[in-house]
Amino acid sequence: MINVEDISVARNHQTILKEITLSFKEGEFINIMGPSGSGKSTFLKLLNGLESFNGGVIRYDGRDILEIDPIDLRREVGYVFQVPYLFGEKVRENIEYPIKLGKLELDEDYVTEMLTSLNLKKEILDKKCKDLSGGEQQRISLLRSLMLRPKVLLLDEITSSLDPINTKLVEEFIKDIYKKYHITIILVTHSVEQAKRMGSRTVFFKEGTVFMDSTTEEFFSHQQKDFIKEFIES
């Protein structure tokens, strides 16, 4: 579904990603891990066209993404940011925003179903954004990205500022929608425990390169490379 071939990214004469080659199949659930500054978030932004690259090719469904209108690509490849930035006054504006952009009709049943899965009441839509807790804001930002029913969902450390209860809620929701809608999910996480609970495949980035790409089971087995062992135990 997504093929990344020999991708490099440099900014201000500094290499961020170096000759990355990875393939993601439709319906896969992948964890991306690695130390801070290893290029994980930049990599994620490349996949929905929010960042540009200096060399290589990225193919989405066989097509070079440079030949796809970035707007069309972003509507199929959803992105949830680490900071749940809600805009406008009311929560509803956030849910309706992607729908209006896509000139679609709001599917109330879909919204209700998603809100229930996220353990949120429908009344939350009429609340002011600033009155929401951090956990509620992140759940709404997740729902906002799902309004266009993307085929791929990119999640950038979305639970890093949440408490354990909200983290569990969000994780369960992601696993639910993964099973129900067969969305391809790529999750950037710092949490070793979260990685164990989530994706079936784990890619480890180090200094802008792919250091390890294996099943999550193999990743957490006892035969890892020293650097990964150190990362897991830190």
């Binding site: 972003r74 509507r75 959803g78 992105y79 930035y85 805009f87 925003y97 930002s141 906002r144 990205s145």
Partner: peptide, 20 residues
């Protein structure tokens, strides 16, 4: 810029993302 980038990520055009 974060607000603009989030709107771009949702499929907004540059003008729609920065209209406010």
């Amino acid at each position: 810029y974060q607000e603009v980038e989030i709107k771009l990520a949702l499929g907004a055009t540059e003008k729609t993302a920065s209209i406010d």
